[in-house]
Design a protein around this nucleic acid. Structure first.
Lengths: 155, 155
DNA sequence: ACTTATGCAACATTTGCAGTTACCAATTGC
DNA sequence: GCAATTGGTAACTGCAAATGTTGCATAAGT
């Protein structure tokens, strides 16, 4: 595996939710993401708890946005998926007795914390509406070259 | 495990190498790192190939620095362990057909690339000698409070 | 020769995300 | 009421990467 793709996937389906109006089923989302409905529900559960989306059960049910895309930032989504580790790099021990290792940890933790803080700050400044705009640009550019619409194969 | 600890571990043992003069065996290093000699050899192999350390075989052999600590940066060590992934976050697909996903990937990749570049730039500015200085400070501070020396349990 | 080391391949273990199955709960339509 | 649809959740499997472990070959000192 190349990493935790939950953030990437949730951004993807949220943008699709922003396009379609009316609820979208986990089944359809799963086809968009090339995965399985249970994976969708599992990950979307966090977004529901944070109030980013709503889920309706039963006939005609599915997922819909609880806020407009310009009120959702990448940081909101990151929080909603439970803030998984940003870095693959880690310390050998968390509270080492060895003073050498303490010095190493202090330096690494300081750099990683700063990098993480800056990254999350940037995430906080980017809304899903901005990503949707970029998508529209790509749509228009693609439409000029070929003739088909630009959605997912599943959409 | 909380992440890839190879960078952390290599920094740790390199600082110990800087303290002791004369070769240190993988056996002893393994005790410093609470691991096994083969893990040490496996990871140190990269540093050897990059010319950061030397390994001598046979009686009285072991590992020693090929450069002084002020000529080794965190970035050098990162390169030497083969540049493992910095982030735990990744994309669902590398070359998606869906234009929505392309927009998501473009935004995420751009932010992650920038964060990585900045982090590695910082790594390039930090030498192991700087970490060793911080260790010395911790040593003196600990010596003032208690009576024992400040090395590893294994050292 | 014997002992001490590294070098290296092969295999087992662990950890976390992803995939899958199964069953329950809620809601709609007949 | 009953069947069909859809989310909620637990439990299990699959998989990839770092780590742990064993075994054996190679090199160097005594």
């Amino acid at each position: 595996m190349k990493g935790d793709s939950r953030l990437s996937r949730m951004l993807h389906v949220l943008l699709h939710l922003g396009e379609q109006q009316g609820p979208v089923t986990s089944e359809l989302m799963a086809r968009m993401l090339n995965t399985h409905p249970v994976v969708v529900r599992r990950t979307m559960a966090g977004l529901r708890e944070k109030g980013l989306v709503r889920a309706e059960r039963g006939h005609g049910g599915g997922w819909s946005l609880a806020r407009s895309l310009d009120r959702i930032s990448l940081l909101d989504v990151y929080h909603a998926i439970d803030e998984p580790p940003v870095f693959a790099l880690g310390m050998a021990e968390d509270e080492p007795r060895c003073l050498v290792e303490q010095a190493v940890n202090a330096a690494l933790e300081s750099e990683l914390r700063e990098a993480r803080d800056k990254l999350l700050k940037r995430f906080g400044e980017i809304t899903l509406a901005a990503l949707a705009e970029d998508f529209e640009r790509r749509m228009r550019r693609a439409a000029r070259k070929s003739q088909h619409g630009g959605g997912c194969g599943a959409a």
